[in-house]
Design a protein around this nucleic acid. Sequence first.
DNA 1: GCTTGACCTTCCAGTTTCTGGAAGCCCTAT
DNA 2: ATAGGGCTTCCAGAAACTGGAAGGTCAAGC
Lengths: 127, 127
Amino acid sequence: MNIGDAAAATGLPAKTIRFYEEIGLVEPARRGNGYRDFSDADVARLGFVARARGLGFSVEDCRALLSLWSDKARASADVKRLAAERLEEIDRKIRELEGLRATLAHLVETCHGDGRPDCPILDELSG
Amino acid sequence: MNIGDAAAATGLPAKTIRFYEEIGLVEPARRGNGYRDFSDADVARLGFVARARGLGFSVEDCRALLSLWSDKARASADVKRLAAERLEEIDRKIRELEGLRATLAHLVETCHGDGRPDCPILDELSG
DNA sequence: GCTTGACCTTCCAGTTTCTGGAAGCCCTAT
DNA sequence: ATAGGGCTTCCAGAAACTGGAAGGTCAAGC
């Protein structure tokens, strides 16, 4: 199938699919006219990447997951490790954002937010 | 003071300070030898930016905040709006990450993670 | 006076993950 | 034959730095 069909099937923009080919995540065949020709397996790979990216895995993680995916002798421990690392990352990020949220929420609450120049938010940022 | 001193005073890497000058967040004077010469006011601006960035404001937000900061006739409402927008962004991001976290945590839990190839994480990503 | 080493300068490239746009070929329908 | 939509490549930009190379400057020590 053409890139447009692959895009429709995976929900990925055609531009993104070309980019994924460029970095070697997928290697579609080429027709005589130069058009990419995506097999069902190619589309499955793209869908896999789309879902993994949606879970926040980096492109490099996706590359590793793809290689585990196609490795019939893989150990599930390897996959689990990648997922667990990603989970830790997410937890770290959530904690960080919650810290920021608390500080910022406090500042927003204490700022009267009217036409006067007096502002606790700027005061805080002034150090 | 030299860039190294400004870096030490603000906690920002010298590279980052040069970058901030390049994009116009600060305009240090120059000495005869070409070295940047940071005034106390320059250092205060850099510190302001460092703290705002630490709260997750974008560089463009910082530019706007700096201009409000130096505007003695500003309305605190303008500052509050920027901070409130940022707060919403943070909330959105936290919700998104918590969704990912739930999915991923479930997958990690259900994967036995041993030497066998069978793996619910890859199954899920396969669609 | 000269060397050494730390510190400063500019400029270019790379990071990450795409996204937009331009110039131009291909295919199908009218 | 022409119009349109889809396809191709290549270049540039976004965000916010970061690393490195090549080279100028300064203060201290011998």
